[in-house]
Nucleic acid binder design. Structure first.
Length: 221
DNA sequence: GCGACAG
DNA sequence: ATCTTGTCGC
């Protein structure tokens, strides 16, 4: 996979995105995260998917997989580095989450197709992008108080996501709809999944496991 | 050409 | 993301 053909894929797939209101509240939500490590000069990715009940946020299921990665990290092309591993891991899930949270952007992307959006097209179900930093767009302002938020806009001033304060005295989160969900519903779900921490619980649990599994993996061998 | 740049 | 210990502050 070359970078230039990856760009063409994004420019084509963005036309398939749909942003519709969530019909009903989900019963299961999945959180995805990945970590990386190198062995004998080869780079590997460890992807973890955690499924929680909603709105209780109780643990339901988890699956993880280690795969080799060849595509480098290139801002705007994260999908081609982490996407393949996610797809393989997803196929091992027994439960069927109605919504999936990704660590990265949804529509708040140079070509409107961040990791969450691209994976949403694959899954054909609602996805959300939860990023810890900005990739694209300009926020109207920076939120400071818990729950406060501002629109994130593209150069044409169109709203592509939002910057929201999910915890006091911490940098805000950059969230955007991935696919089959509106920005409004995206923000509602993110706020409903907060558990006293800055990162929504599905993504937070996945991140904790991604680090722990990798650490145990190195400790044993 | 210069700066920006998810994880 | 990852390399890495302690430390300032709510």
């Amino acid at each position: 996979m070359e970078a230039d053909e990856a760009l063409d894929i994004q420019r084509e797939l963005v036309n398939h995105l749909r942003f519709s209101p969530l019909g009903q509240m989900p019963r299961l939500i999945a959180g995805v995260d990945s970590s990386f490590f190198t062995v004998d000069g080869n780079e590997y990715i460890l992807t973890v998917i955690v499924v929680l009940s909603f709105p209780d946020l109780e643990y339901v299921e988890k699956k993880y997989l280690t795969n080799r990665v060849n595509f480098p990290y290139i801002p705007g092309l994260l999908t081609f580095r982490e996407g393949p591993s996610f797809v393989k891991t997803w196929k091992r899930l027994h439960s069927e989450p109605e919504v999936v949270f990704f660590d990265g952007q949804g529509t708040a992307h140079p070509r409107g197709l961040g990791l969450a959006s691209h994976m949403g097209l694959f899954l054909e179900r609602p996805t959300i992008g939860v990023a810890k930093s900005r990739l694209y767009g300009t926020p109207d302002d920076i939120p400071k108080k818990l729950g406060e938020w501002f629109p994130l806009r593209n150069p044409d001033k169109e709203i592509i996501g939002s910057v929201i304060c999910t915890k006091k005295d911490t940098k805000p989160l950059y969230i955007s709809p991935g696919h089959l969900i509106t920005l409004e519903d995206t923000m509602r779900l993110v706020m409903s999944c907060l558990n006293g921490y800055k990162i929504p619980e599905p993504t937070r649990q996945a991140h904790i496991l991604t680090q722990r599994i990798k650490r145990e993996k190195q400790t044993e061998q």
